[in-house]
């Protein structure tokens, strides 16, 4: 078993915290691991990535070869596109759909998300929406950790232990926010996939998820949503245009 993950984002978004959680979970699980990261100039708001590899056998390269990556995990949607040529044919993308716009030529967001949604093995979560609900916009990185957790080789407890460890220094409140962010991410990722697996278009699924109250998310409600949207073509737009969030149980 070997897993190769590229963590992607923008300097300041907390990629290295994401790496910390996986590194320590890998060490606990008795895996070998290597994790190459970016320090220096790019950390000032530039594109940053980290190559993270864990395995039950010795790992050679710190860098992941093209075509050998199992997952691109992005805290920012545009950043996925910088690295998806590293993915194996059956590799996964787990991404935030919340754009971080600090450049003048940032693409139109819905075009960008449509392009991403065409990738079959994808999990899309609105990290901005979920982190805000968890209590702090800065916890978007932990939302993405949660969103991956069904695809990796660690249990919820193994990961949460290190989410807590990472923020312990900053006090109980911050720990609680990040725990929640992780759990919301986990639930949102599963819900998104359940929608897509029940036949909903990934772009629409991502849009719908960004309007659902995170505390109500549960996969058993997904199929009913697909049915509902099929019967009522205008429903999604109505929800997107309304100012308030809906329960996963139904509008």
């Amino acid at each position: 078993m070997q897993k190769n993950i590229i963590l992607a984002g923008v300097g300041g978004q907390g990629i290295l915290s994401v790496a910390y959680v996986f590194d320590n979970a890998a060490l606990d699980a008795g895996f070998y691991f290597k994790q190459a990261e970016v320090h220096g100039m790019a950390q000032r708001g530039g594109a940053v990535q980290s190559n993270l590899r864990y395995s039950d056998a010795k790992i050679h390269s710190d860098l992941i070869p093209e075509g050998r990556c199992d997952m691109v995990l992005a805290v920012e949607p545009l950043e996925v596109m910088r690295y998806w040529h590293y993915l194996k044919p059956d590799g996964w993308v787990v991404t935030s759909i919340t754009p971080f716009v600090n450049i003048p030529d940032y693409p139109e967001i819905d075009t960008l998300l449509t392009d991403l949604a065409a990738f079959p093995n994808i999990v899309m979560v609105d990290t901005g929406h979920l982190a805000r609900a968890a209590g702090n916009l800065r916890s978007q990185n932990m939302v993405t950790v949660g969103a991956t957790s069904n695809l990796l080789d660690f249990t919820e407890e193994q990961l949460l232990k290190h989410v807590e460890g990472l923020f312990a220094r900053k006090g109980e409140k911050i720990v609680a926010v990040n725990r929640k962010a992780f759990l919301y991410g986990r639930a949102a990722g599963a819900f998104f996939r359940a929608l897509v697996d029940s036949g909903l278009d990934a772009f629409k699924a991502a849009k719908l998820c960004s309007k659902i109250k995170p505390e109500t998310l549960a996969v058993e409600y997904a199929a009913a949503w697909v049915e509902r949207l099929r019967n009522n073509g205008a429903l999604l737009d109505t929800i997107l245009e309304s100012g308030s969030n809906v329960s996963a149980e139904g509008p």
Binding site: A42, G46, L78, Y86, K88, Y106, P107, F119
Partner: peptide
């Protein structure tokens, strides 16, 4: 690989 490299992607300098 699963995807070809992106072309003309907006750069994000520091």
């Amino acid at each position: 690989a699963a995807h070809s490299p992106s072309t003309n992607l907006a750069l994000r300098p520091p």
